[in-house]
Nucleic acid binder design. Structure first.
Length: 301
DNA sequence: AAGGATGCCAACCGCCACGTG
DNA sequence: CCACGTGGCGGTTGGCATCCT
């Protein structure tokens, strides 16, 4: 037995909204507001709007409300999305709050369909080309990406590295999650029982804001990493690096995208999140540093 | 030209948090 | 403290558009 549905599914229309339905919902909300109860809204609107309250809410928030922007993400927006994704993961509503006019659904779609591919598509192309060349010429380990792939994004040119194995999308996401864990992220699940049960170092996320409180870059502060935890992370890191030989490619891509403030990664170095991850001390900058969870009301999350 | 593959995005689903009685 | 209803969220899906072979 599941929970009772929020509305009578049998008498509710599903699928794309018609212009008439949009007009009804929009004009009602503009005149009367939502009344603080989305579930009851369709009944209030009445005639011919046979929609679930949740569906009304979604339609309003994602499409009908004023000042919604669709499509055409700028590079600056790309950077913000990636910065925040690296910091907090797939919390699209929080990310959307930093991008006026953008909805969480839009950003989620954009990430899933395009931005992620900017990160991983190159490797996929490289792998597929490797498979092709393997078919033609036997086993080779060094693969040059085709020139059209290399100029198709604004990502910096990664060094050409051997590609060891094909990984599916889940494996790739696990890979980046492992890196986020390694380099200072938290709350990331890796589907790896060993990593997932590794003691998570005590970390506090914060972000750097300029005077107008607009986001500049993510800033992870490591509050108190003890040696044992760092040793654990370090030993796993080597293992991870060996297992995921293409990690460097991703991170160098991120470096270019996020700019020097966020990630400065050189071979064998830790990423710099505005502080030294090996240090146990806070490293507030001279700029206004705001606790991340305060900024986003995340206390208790 | 056809049809299969892929991209894209609006919308749905189900879970969880929170408020209220 | 508990049960219930609602809001909010992230993951997923369905279907149309476009691309590719």
């Amino acid at each position: 037995m599941g929970r009772a549905p929020c509305c009578d599914k049998a008498n509710v229309k599903k699928g794309p909204w018609s212009p008439e339905e949009d007009a009804k919902l929009k004009s009602y909300i503009e005149q009367h507001g939502t009344g603080g109860n989305w579930i009851a809204l369709p009944q209030k609107i009445g005639k011919c709007l046979k929609r679930c309250g949740k569906s009304c809410r979604l339609r309003w928030l994602n499409y009908l409300r004023p000042n919604i922007k669709h499509g055409g993400f700028s590079e600056e927006e790309d950077r913000i999305i990636l910065s925040l994704y690296v910091s907090i993961g797939s919390r699209w509503s929080i990310i959307a709050a930093q991008l006026p006019g953008r909805t969480d659904n839009d950003i989620k779609n954009y990430w899933n369909t395009r931005l992620k591919k900017k990160l991983f598509g190159k490797q996929r192309k490289m792998r597929s080309q490797k498979q092709d060349s393997n078919k033609k010429e036997g086993n080779q380990t060094l693969v040059m990406p085709p020139s059209d792939v290399r100029i198709s994004t604004y990502w910096p040119e990664p060094p050409i590295r051997p590609v060891q194995h094909a990984a599916d999308q889940n494996e790739q996401m696990d890979s980046i999650k492992r890196l986020l864990f390694k380099y200072g992220g938290t709350n990331y699940k890796t589907n790896d029982p060993v990593l997932d049960h590794l003691p998570v170092p005590c970390m506090q996320s914060s972000q750097i804001f300029d005077e107008s409180s607009s986001l500049i870059s993510p800033h992870i502060e490591l509050m108190s990493l003890n040696e044992g935890v760092m040793h654990g992370l370090d030993s796993y890191s080597k293992e991870i690096d060996e297992s995921f030989c293409f990690n460097q490619i991703k991170l160098e891509g991120l470096e270019g995208l996020l700019g020097n403030n966020s990630i400065g990664l050189e071979t064998g170095e830790y990423m710099r999140w505005g502080c030294d991850p090996m240090s146990s001390t806070m490293n507030p900058t001279s700029m206004g540093v705001q606790r991340f969870d305060e900024q986003f009301n995340l206390s208790g999350m």
